[in-house]
Design a protein around this nucleic acid. Structure first.
Lengths: 173, 173
DNA sequence: GACAAATTTCTGAAATTTCAGAAAATAGGC
DNA sequence: GCCTATTTTCTGAAATTTCAGAAATTTGTC
């Protein structure tokens, strides 16, 4: 495989975006590479295309598999693994959302729960009130994010595209 | 002001959450402190309560002001500034959403736009197709996030709480 | 089961980020 | 307009994160 200049540019930009999202540059670049690749790639190939250490590619691919953003395939008569990215961007978004929910909000819910209990125990109504408000927010976020997982790409897509209209509708209730 | 054990625990946990969200621990802790504080605090006070350098507090507060998550107030006969956090958690969520949109997706939209143009120029239909799909996704996200900014807390709150029901509804369309 | 190809884990170096202390700038009261 | 309390900016040290190279492990083939 050969990368066109445009593809390389996208991959670099995607890597930059990754760093803002808390994803290592090389991990994001690998995802970008697989997203624009026409066929599944072997790890060694990716090393050469992006000039990354083999170890780095290995670790990053594992991370991406954890997000369910890349799949690993094997081929008869070839002992290497080949990787390809989730091609459906809506499915991709859903999986990122789910992973972020798990990592970013799930922990907070538990922390606030504990602090709420402690504040009530102590009879500290002010702090308890704040914890309660925060809990309501976090639980709503969890509920929406969890619900989104239950539906398929087309529903998710329509929901996102209708989002702004729905907000307008709700504002009239 | 004196911090109870529960409050301190919340602040520490909030700081931990911050690091997962790409926010420096000390910045997140300051926000947590102001969120549980009953009255506005002066910077010096926060240094003592959280054992942070004055410079650090100054920089972090500025960052939080950038997010519109804390307000600065002045008092007659006192030349210090006092700070308080946005108390409405839904308003808080909205502001975080807006800031993340600005920092995290706005740049991506532009990058993909450029790559799409380049791919079409080159007649690379495969890459162009991928860019187009990505563009649709990013623009939908932008649209929803932008729309959310137009409505007040109560609409935002209702929308979030109804989110899962709306998804169920849409799945039937 | 030995061998080789491929992958993963381990270790430390390089880069980045966070944060404290010192110096500079700003602002309010007299 | 000067003086001083307060805030901000600058600088570098400490901590963390990212990533390459080497070593160890796994996997499939014969």
């Amino acid at each position: 495989m050969q990368l066109s200049e445009t593809q390389m540019k996208f991959i670099r930009r995607w890597g930059d975006m990754g760093t803002r999202w808390g994803i290592p540059r090389s991990t994001a670049m690998l995802h970008g590479l697989l997203y624009v690749a026409q066929a599944p790639l072997a790890a060694e190939e990716m090393c050469e295309l992006l000039q990354l250490a083999r170890s780095n590619v290995s670790t990053s691919l594992k991370e991406l598999e954890g997000y369910n953003l890349v799949y690993r395939e094997s081929r008869p008569g070839d002992r290497r693994s080949f990787y390809r990215a989730e091609a459906d961007v809506w499915e991709m978004a859903r999986r990122i959302l789910e992973e972020r929910r798990r990592r970013e909000t799930a922990g907070a819910v538990q922390a606030v729960e504990e602090c709420l209990a402690a504040a009530q125990q102590e009879g500290d109504t002010h702090t308890a009130g704040r914890m309660l408000a925060m809990q309501e927010l976090l639980q709503s976020a969890e509920t929406v994010a969890t619900a989104a997982q239950r539906y398929n790409t087309s529903v998710f897509r329509r929901a996102a595209m209708m989002g702004s209209k729905l907000l307008a509708l709700i504002s009239k209730l």
